Amino acid sequence: MKKLVLFIGLLGLSPIFAQETEIDITPDNSWLKAGLTAGIPVGDASDVSSFNLGVDLRGQYLFNPNLAIGVASGYSHYFAKENFEDFGMIPVAGFLRYYFTPNGLFFGSDLGYSFLTNVENNDGGLYLNPQIGYHNRDWNIYAFYQNIFAENDVDLQSVGVGVTYNIRFK
């Protein structure tokens, strides 16, 4: 079922990528975002972990002043509670963001697959990461709710904050 939801989600994004348009990448419409995240596990993850820290890496293309697409990855390390082991997750996702103004509020979401590290009998699963935040030309500060619908009916969820710096392509 989870793979079907991922397949349908990717089909929904395919018209965005299938258009035959000439893309001119400039420092005004494309950049790399690099930053840090911190979160508190909720749901199943809160049973075994009390805190998570991560790095966030993104490549973004701005279609117009309001709509952006891109690819996202990174790593989040979950610090285990007593009698459990630390584990991590590595997402590979596409994302969509809507910017209301050149400086100000934005919202968006990542959709993809997340690999789990140091977890027995579970390679990962469907990854969803909606965000709302503030941005300017150089920085993004946001709140997120992250959910991994992993194998064996395990849902790893966390809520937190992140900050990224925009590195312009030249």
Rank of each mutant, 00 (worst) to 15 (best):
L126K: 04
F149P: 00
P41V: 03
L36N: 04
P41K: 02
A150G: 14
I16R: 09
S76C: 03
A93F: 10
L128A: 13
A72F: 10
G43Y: 00
I40D: 00
G104F: 06
S14N: 06
V154C: 00
G124Q: 06
M89L: 15
N83C: 01
A93G: 09
Y165M: 03
E22H: 14
G9V: 06
Y145W: 13
Q146T: 12
G112L: 07
A18S: 15
V48T: 14
I148H: 03
G35P: 01
L67I: 15
D153F: 07
F87R: 10
N52S: 10
T37N: 12
L128W: 14
L11T: 12
L126W: 05
K33E: 15
F84V: 03
P65I: 11
T117F: 08
D155S: 12
F95Q: 10
S114C: 10
G124D: 07
G125P: 04
V42F: 02
G160H: 01
I69D: 02
I23S: 07
Q131N: 10
Y145F: 13
F169W: 09
L62Y: 07
N122Q: 14
E120R: 13
L13G: 05
G54L: 01
V42E: 05
N52R: 13
F106P: 04
A80T: 08
S114P: 00
I141E: 03
L111I: 15
D56G: 00
S73I: 05
V48N: 08
G124H: 07
F106W: 06
N122H: 04
G43H: 03
N118W: 00
I141V: 15
L4W: 12
G124I: 08
Y142L: 02
K81L: 13
N140E: 15
I148V: 15
F63P: 01
T37Q: 12
M89A: 12
M89N: 15
L156T: 06
Q60C: 00
M1G: 14
D155T: 11
N122E: 13
P41F: 02
D56A: 03
A34Q: 01
G88P: 07
F63E: 09
P15S: 08
F144H: 10
S73G: 15
G133R: 06
Y134Q: 05
D56L: 05
P15V: 10
